[in-house]
């Protein structure tokens, strides 16, 4: 898998996040500060601007640049969180000659570990980690069963969607939503939603 596949992923994800910006913001307005969709859209449009003006030699360079762009442009907590994800994801691919299912798995794990270290969330805190965690598990299981990158990412995206849906009844313990306490229950977590969108995009584009 070459750098083009990752460029496609980022462009596709930017498109999906743009389409879903209003939806994400609506979710965030229920339990947060009503900016998640706008923030993610701004961050990924900035990535697209970078892609339009620069060509990248390697996937790790590309993804690290994407991470740094999100850090600076998103503005909300998802900036450092997704920024860290892509930075670590890219770093894990540095020097990897053939990017296969195993390499992508390692990169996913590195990225999510970065998210955890940054956000200090635990499973059930009603955060994006509630989507990332089952996704990683499903990805690993698929690869162990012999799947290639594409099917493994599809399994991961499906698991992320289940994790996202499972955030609805949870009471938020991290982020702005935690100020709402019990009132945060009954709403789907915007972060888990954008994570699922990004993984679904990966399943479509990385193969």
């Amino acid at each position: 898998m070459g750098v083009d596949a990752f460029v496609n992923w980022l462009r596709d994800a930017a498109g999906v996040l743009h389409e879903n910006a209003a939806y994400l913001t609506e979710l965030d307005s229920a339990i947060g500060d009503a900016d998640h969709g706008a923030n993610m859209d701004r961050g990924f449009q900035a990535i697209v601007a970078v892609l339009d003006g620069t060509s990248f030699e390697s996937a790790d360079e590309l993804l690290k640049k994407a991470g740094m762009t999100l850090v600076s442009k998103v503005g909300g907590a998802s900036g450092p969180l997704y920024g860290t994800f892509f930075l670590r994801f890219g770093t894990a691919l540095a020097g990897v000659s053939s990017i296969n299912a195993e390499a992508v798995g390692k990169a996913l794990h590195a990225g999510v570990e970065g998210v955890l270290a940054r956000g200090k969330a635990e499973l059930g805190d009603k955060t994006m980690y509630d989507a990332w965690a089952p996704a990683l598990e499903a990805y690993d299981a698929a690869v162990a069963g012999g799947s290639e990158v594409g099917p493994a990412l599809t399994a991961a995206a499906e698991a992320a969607a289940k994790g996202r849906d499972a955030t609805v009844p949870l009471v938020a313990r991290k982020g702005r939503a935690s100020y709402l306490g019990e009132r945060s229950a009954g709403h789907q977590d915007p972060g888990a939603t954008s994570t699922t969108l990004i993984l679904e995009s990966a399943a479509r584009t990385l193969a």
Partner: peptide, 13 residues
């Protein structure tokens, strides 16, 4: 802020 009027924080800044 991301700029004078946009709310947000930037690790690089």
């Amino acid at each position: 802020g991301l700029d004078a009027t946009t709310f947000g924080t930037d690790a690089m800044a």
